[in-house]
Computed example of a mutant assay.
Amino acid sequence: MDDWERRIDEVWALASGSMVDEEVIARIDAIAAERGPDDARAEFERAGARDSAGRPDQAVPLYERALRLGLDDEHRPQAVIQMASSIRNLGDHRRALGLLEEEFRTHPDAPYRDEVAAFLALALVSSAQPERAASVALLALAPHLRRYTRSVTNYANDLVD
């Protein structure tokens, strides 16, 4: 981990404790500025600061820009998840659902597969598709069960058949 990432992580650690939203945004913006305006990771962090502060309308354009600039395999799925969640919170359930379904479909072996499934299930509930939501959530959970994996998988598939 380089110094830039360490300082970003320090701000996020403080953000979960005593630091207020405005200060988080200001600190993240200051550190992000070191990389310039065309750095995908810096834009991702700026988006996350606004998202964390309850400003999804400000976060979404920054996530979009970060994705256009090109994020690595660690941060790209996080940006998709976080942006889709913000979009869902802004009431555009269809767009959020589309982003998450595409991520789920095109990156089946991604390290954030379960996280994508969780937010996809939330978007499905928001889109009045609770059976599909339950199916997605159960299919994500099934491989982690100590027992009944096959039964839960079958029941989950039955919910959408």
Rank of each mutant, 00 (worst) to 15 (best):
M1D: 14
D2A: 12
D3A: 09
R7F: 03
R7K: 10
D9F: 04
E10S: 02
V11D: 03
A13V: 12
L14I: 02
L14P: 08
A15Q: 08
A15N: 07
G17M: 08
G17W: 05
G17N: 08
S18G: 14
S18M: 08
S18Y: 14
M19K: 14
M19R: 14
M19C: 07
V20I: 08
E22T: 03
E22P: 01
E23Q: 15
V24C: 09
I25W: 05
A26G: 10
A26N: 12
A26E: 11
I31L: 15
A32F: 05
A33Q: 11
E34W: 13
D39R: 14
A40V: 09
R41F: 09
E43M: 14
F44C: 11
F44N: 13
E45I: 01
A47R: 13
A47M: 03
A47C: 04
A49Y: 01
A49M: 04
D51H: 12
S52C: 10
S52V: 01
A53D: 12
A53M: 07
G54V: 04
R55H: 13
P56D: 00
A59M: 01
V60H: 05
P61N: 06
P61L: 06
E64C: 00
E64P: 00
R65F: 15
R65S: 14
A66F: 10
A66K: 08
A66N: 07
R68H: 10
L69H: 14
L69T: 05
G70M: 04
D72H: 07
D73M: 02
H75N: 09
H75L: 10
R76S: 11
A79V: 05
A79T: 09
V80F: 14
V80Q: 11
Q82N: 15
Q82R: 11
M83P: 06
M83A: 15
M83Q: 15
A84L: 11
S86Y: 10
I87M: 07
L90M: 12
G91M: 09
G91Y: 06
H93C: 11
H93Q: 13
A96F: 02
L97V: 08
G98T: 02
G98L: 09
G98Y: 02
L99A: 08
L99M: 12
L100C: 06
E102G: 05
E103G: 08
F104W: 11
R105G: 03
R105C: 02
T106P: 03
H107T: 11
H107V: 01
D109F: 14
A110D: 10
Y112L: 02
R113K: 08
D114F: 00
D114Y: 00
E115P: 03
V116N: 11
A117P: 06
A117N: 09
A118I: 01
A118S: 07
F119E: 10
A121Q: 06
A121V: 01
A121E: 04
L124A: 06
V125L: 06
S126I: 01
P130M: 06
P130F: 05
E131A: 08
A133I: 04
A134P: 00
A134L: 06
S135L: 03
A140L: 06
P143T: 02
L145E: 07
L145M: 05
R146F: 13
R146Q: 15
R147K: 05
R150V: 00
R150Q: 02
S151P: 09
V152R: 12
N154W: 14
N154Y: 14
A156N: 07
D158Q: 07
